[in-house]
Write a protein that binds this DNA or RNA. Structure first.
Length: 511
RNA sequence: GCUCGUAUAGUGUAGUGGCCCAUCAUGAAGGACUCUCAUUCCUUCGACCCGGGUUCAAAUCCCGGUACGAGCACCA
């Protein structure tokens, strides 16, 4: 009917016979941004992000920062940055990382955290809760070796220490604090249930001993002060409660941690925060990087530092010109699904391009340049816009009075070229003969450089795990260090401290 | 092995029983604009892991299978 009499005819029939069918269907709106939090009241939400400062922040850390701080904005709540620096041997903190992480946090989320907490400043507080736990009988000092306890965990049997009286436990606890035990000889456990289905939850360890003489804490004010240190599950659980954290959003690798901590909260009579998890994210182009592996590779010279652009650190990404907003948009788009995913860098680059293109002045870089002499009448100078879509950004003026120009060697295959914004030329030997100022035909348009307005320069970048190093001529400019420019026909680049250019989005041209 | 979790286009993502022959982005291909292989815009391509069940109705709920991931550290 619609095809024969038109839609209007159909409509009029419906109006008469079934008007309700014409009512606008309410289409499900695609959800914008992050989903609502459970049990969240505006103004009362407290979130935290708790990295170990054993190195600067990496790409993956950005997720925790972005998601948590975005919820802070959504609910007008509080965001805590907490340094979980309670291990001095396996993953020892790095002193410089404390400040760097705070700086990077501010860079990424655009504001300072509402609170900054150092776990290593709060050891006495954790002790109080440990003592409390022992006195109340839901914790005990276990003097079994790790191997011995493992057998108990597997066989669902209690170890001999489990039935000690609170008094005995307090005696052992004091001896732990006094350094009468060596690391490995005693540990404080939370009494749960040795028959729990999940073996990970059975009487889990809460505090242990560390040889802080041999491995002092890197913060000088802490150093070797303490020998008893809380483990993550205990420290984090107690601190979350003390700080009034209402929502925890973290990796699903910590799901069992939530269960362990919930058991502890039950003992203390506390209510566990709402918890959300995200799955693992891999980037196609990056293998597995661990903080300790990166540290090794930096020390042995494989990478130039934490800001080596080949590294998935925030510092490395920043050096390549990745914008904080692009990173935020990227993580917000992924959301908080529990799926394990693998994303290509192209996705991050797409976000970055959107952020930078409007503000990126155009510049010219001629790779593998070949010089030509202009032959024919031409003006002494030309003007080029800084940005084709934004005339208000002004123009750059090139001087052509010495008649010498540079062209990319890759463009020489064609003899007839259009020098962008200038003239049609024909190449012969090292001469570029002017054929027309007006564009007359469809010959390819190439970028080029006036000799007087360019210097030798280097374009660097990365290709997989190697450096890209392209010699060429770079246009003279007055942009400050750090400016993101667009090298026409080449790509976006960041102006570096040494005056060279760093490609923002690796890929193309394996040279 | 035990425990837990997840499965929607190439890659991500929306979707919590009917508005879904499935959203949005990215990607790829084509096109418009442009004196950049940029930006912007348009078009096209492409998916509900498998098998049962519940229901008038299932991507959505249940069960089973499969796949992938994580935890079972005196690391975080």
């Amino acid at each position: 009917m619609a095809s024969e009499q038109g839609l209007d005819a159909v409509r009029s029939v419906l109006e008469n016979e079934a008007p309700h069918l014409l009512e606008k269907r309410e289409t499900k709106a695609r959800r914008e941004g992050l989903p609502d939090l459970n049990n969240a009241t505006k103004g009362k939400v407290v979130l935290r992000f708790a990295p170990n400062p054993n190195g600067p922040l990496s790409f993956g850390h950005a997720r925790g920062l972005v998601i948590n701080s975005t919820y802070r904005e959504m609910y007008d709540g509080e965001f805590i940055l907490r340094f979980d620096d309670t291990d001095t041997k396996v993953k020892p903190p790095m002193l410089e990382a404390y400040k760097q992480i705070q700086d990077e946090t501010e860079w990424l989320i655009g504001r300072q955290p509402d609170r900054v907490v150092f776990a290593s400043d709060r050891i006495e507080t954790y002790y109080e809760h440990a003592a409390n736990m022992l006195e109340q009988g839901f914790g005990y000092v276990c003097r079994c070796s790790a191997e011995e306890f493992k057998e108990h965990r597997v066989s669902k049997t209690s170890c001999p220490c489990r039935t000690q009286t609170p008094q005995d436990n307090m005696v052992f606890w004091t001896r732990m604090l006094n350094g009468n035990f060596k690391p490995g000889e005693a540990v404080v456990r939370v009494k749960t249930d040795m028959t729990l289905k999940n073996p990970a939850l059975r009487d889990w360890p809460a505090l242990r001993l560390q040889d802080t003489k041999a491995h002092p804490h890197p913060r000088p004010e802490i150093g070797s002060t303490y020998v008893v240190w809380p483990l993550l599950d205990f420290q984090s659980a107690v601190e979350d409660h003390l700080q009034g954290v209402t929502h925890i959003i973290r990796g699903k690798d910590l799901m069992d941690s939530t269960r362990k901590q919930t058991l502890l909260y039950e003992h203390f009579g506390w209510t566990y925060p709402e918890t959300l998890y995200w799955g693992r994210v891999k980037v196609h182009e990056w293998g597995g990087f661990s903080t300790s592996q990166m540290r090794n590779d930096i020390e042995n010279g494989k990478y130039s530092g934490w800001d080596d652009p080949r590294l998935p650190t925030l510092a490395g990404l920043k050096k390549r010109g990745t914008q904080a907003l692009a990173l935020r948009n990227f993580w917000l788009e992924l959301g908080i699904t529990q799926k394990d995913i693998s994303v290509p860098l192209a996705t991050l680059y797409a976000h970055n391009t959107k952020v930078i293109d409007d503000d990126a002045p155009r510049m010219t870089f001629v790779r593998h340049p070949v010089s030509f002499d202009l032959v024919g009448d031409h003006q002494d100078s030309i003007e080029l816009p800084h940005h084709p879509n934004h005339p208000q950004m002004g123009v750059r003026r090139w001087n052509l009075s010495n008649g010498k120009i540079w062209i990319e060697s890759e463009d020489l295959e064609k003899m007839d070229l259009r020098l962008k914004e200038f003239a049609d030329v024909a190449l012969h030997d090292r001469e570029a003969r002017l054929e027309s100022i007006e564009r007359l035909d469809k010959r390819p348009i190439v970028h080029w450089l006036s000799d007087q307005n360019s210097t030798e320069g280097v374009l660097v970048g990365t290709k997989d795990d190697t450096h890209l190093h392209i010699e060429g001529r770079v246009e003279r400019h007055k942009h400050p260090v750090g400016t993101i420019v667009q090298l026409e026909r080449v790509g976006y680049a960041r102006i570096m401290e040494d005056g060279n250019l760093m490609l923002c989005h690796e890929e193309l041209q394996a040279e």
